[in-house]
Computed example of a mutant assay.
Amino acid sequence: MHKCGRYPEKPATDLALEAALNALDDAGIPWNAMEVAYASHVAQGVSVGEAICEKLGMTGIPIINVENACASGSTAIREAFYAIANGVYDVAIVIGVEKMNRGVLGGAGEEGSLERELGLNVMPARYALKANKHMHAYSTTVEQMAKVSVKNHKNGCLNPYAHYQKVFTVEEVLASKMICDPITLLQCCPTSDGAAAAVLCAAKIVRRYNSKPKVFIAGSALKTEKYKDDADLTARTAKAAYEMAAMEPGDIDFAELHDAFTIGEILHCESLGFCPPGEGGVLVDTGRTEIGGDIPVNPSGGLQSRGHPLGMTGVAQLCEVVWQLRGAAAKRQVESAKVGLTHTQGAGGVCSVHIFKR
């Protein structure tokens, strides 16, 4: 991984190169053993994957650029996983990278669409509506939402790859600049630069290259919204992943999920089945989502603290899960972790859930 932050002097390809070299070194596999490369990014231009891989060496392999909003990295992982599972390749590398513009994150709705005319193309506005709805329906409080930020920034202080490594109090979070009521500045993820990479390979050769503890993909799901759908998108996606893995929410030891805004973590915890609907705020209140709780959420610091370089996020989540399941997460280690879940959700109505096991 390349540490998230602001790197005006570095092109995206240099961020990605560092992440890719780190992944290859971690796996103990040389670049010329890669059979395919997937490069996830959202707004980095044409053929960024080819530009990254040119720096690694032009070996003639297929290079596939993947864009799927905030779920780009997770989608690239899924594509690599299914290609390997179906015997097309034995070894693949997934590289996620993004350099972000400063300012409020937009991107939803086409030019001239009703969404844009109403101002709903701005992400804080969309999440603020969700927050107000949840507060009205379940008496969720602004303090509970602020506690998500407090927890994740505290976790981020333990992650050397996190963009912001600073502890905040509930009072400081609530007193920060109002962005879109009730969401304040410190309840929004930063717009960061960063890159992450991972090597995936077939189970039949996984022990050929190193003796490190191995992590396997047990479940993979990717869904989009549909008309007249009674089920929440995340809930429907998670259901497919749980079924594939032959697991239930209670089998998950920790999760890295999409906390672009604090209310997102509360909503997604409910949708993933970690608590009943309406009790996401209580889940945070009672400390259950802390690193030492019974369902730690975002031990990496999540998007709130690590950052949210769009094309990187899903791959960064995978890296965190692997470190946790190997017992290599240092001070943020989740005790006795055997199963981890990742979740991303993006503009346009796309969601991805993966389940990993030792």
Rank of each mutant, 00 (worst) to 15 (best):
M1A: 08
Y7R: 05
K10G: 09
D14T: 02
D14R: 09
L15F: 08
A16P: 04
L21T: 12
L24K: 09
L24T: 11
G28M: 13
E35G: 10
A39F: 01
H41D: 08
A43C: 12
S47T: 08
V48N: 01
I52M: 04
E54D: 11
L56V: 02
T75N: 10
A76R: 02
A76I: 00
E79I: 06
E79C: 08
Y82Q: 13
Y82V: 15
I93L: 11
E110S: 12
G112D: 05
E115R: 07
R116W: 06
G119P: 15
L120H: 04
N121L: 05
L129G: 12
A131C: 10
A137T: 14
S139A: 13
S139K: 13
K151M: 15
C157M: 14
V167K: 04
V167E: 08
V167L: 10
V173M: 11
V173Y: 06
M178T: 12
T184P: 12
T191I: 15
S192H: 09
S192T: 14
G194V: 10
L200T: 00
L200C: 07
L200A: 04
I205P: 12
V206E: 04
K212M: 02
P213S: 07
K214E: 01
K214I: 01
S220I: 05
S220A: 14
K223E: 15
Y227S: 13
L233W: 02
A238W: 05
A241Y: 00
A245W: 00
P249N: 00
F254V: 04
D259M: 10
I263A: 06
H268C: 08
H268K: 14
C269N: 06
F274H: 06
G278T: 06
L283V: 08
V297E: 06
L303D: 02
S305G: 02
R306M: 10
H308T: 02
P309A: 09
G311C: 12
T313C: 14
L318Q: 06
E320N: 09
V321R: 00
V322F: 03
W323E: 07
A329M: 06
R332A: 14
V334K: 00
E335L: 13
S336H: 14
G340A: 01
T342L: 04
T344R: 00
S352E: 11
H354D: 01
